[in-house]
């Protein structure tokens, strides 16, 4: 589904990603772990098309298309979804209104007819049940005054509504208590199909107890320095990141 080759990215002339290689197929869940400042969130942002970053080398192919040529909205329209670490507040715009605009623009880009109010509401109802979110929250200004848990749950609800092919969850577990974490993870698991893929970016192993990855990659100093199956996550939880750092230093 997505193929990342030798990806280098800088911000203000500082190189953050120094040659990432990653291959994600449909139906797979990949976890990207690593210590703070290793470039995890940068990778998520680069995939979503954030313009602050300059791609200096490498390629990203999504469904046989050069992803790096596409604008952020085109990437979204083609099925890439980023659940933000810090969801942004938009005062005066309800989640409902926001999503209606988003969905219809995505549909338009795909040559589909816009959803009318009736079908949109039907879809909303269906997805609300799926991620167990309250109607009242969706009528409020997007993310404004939301608790950490409400923000993250709202991200997952948006994901449910937009039905992406590739979901990138950027530190979705940060700031969540265990109950909220479970709800978010349940949502992600429910939405997972054999045709979709998920990249979970996280510092801690605990989210991976609920969203079980097929592959775990350790990102350190802008490179993937170790890959393995879910047991790697447990190992990291137990031993921390220092042994990885030492291994890298030894090379």
């Amino acid at each position: 589904m997505i193929s990342i080759k030798n990806l280098h990215a800088s911000i203000e002339d500082k190189e953050i990603l120094k040659g990432i290689d990653l291959e994600v197929k449909a139906g797979e869940v990949h976890a990207i772990m690593g210590p703070n400042g290793s470039g995890k969130s940068t990778l998520a942002s680069v995939l979503a098309g954030r313009e602050d970053y300059e791609i200096t080398e490498g390629s990203v192919t999504f469904e046989n298309e050069d992803l790096l040529e596409l604008s952020p909205e085109e990437r979204a329209q083609k099925g890439i979804f980023l659940a933000f670490q810090y969801p942004v507040e938009i005062p005066g715009v309800s989640t409902t209104n926001f999503l209606k605009t988003a969905i219809n623009q995505v549909r338009e880009a795909r040559g589909q007819k816009a959803l009318d109010a009736v079908h949109f509401l039907k879809l909303m109802k269906e997805k609300m049940k799926l991620v167990d979110i309250d109607q009242a929250l969706l009528s409020r200004s997007l993310n404004e005054g939301f608790s950490g848990g409400e923000k993250k749950r709202n991200e997952i609800f948006q994901m449910a509504m937009l039905e992406p092919k590739l979901a990138v969850l950027d530190e979705t577990d940060s700031g969540l208590d265990i109950d909220a974490l479970k709800i978010v993870a349940d949502g992600v698991n429910t939405l997972k199909t054999k045709d979709t893929a998920t990249i979970v970016v996280t510092h801690y192993q605990r989210l991976l107890e609920y969203i079980v990855p097929d592959y775990v990659h350790v990102l350190y100093q802008g490179r993937i320095v170790k890959s393995g199956d879910k047991s790697l996550a447990f190992e990291l939880e137990e031993k921390g990141y220092d042994w990885i750092k030492e291994e890298v230093a030894a090379i």
Binding site: A48, G49, E73, A76, F84, V88, E89, I90, Q105
Partner: peptide, 18 residues
């Protein structure tokens, strides 16, 4: 704010209007 909208498939002009 604009990037957030764009990431949901909304183009920049529409994002500003929103």
């Amino acid at each position: 704010q604009i990037f957030y909208c764009q990431q949901r498939g909304i183009d920049e002009e529409t994002a500003v209007a929103l």
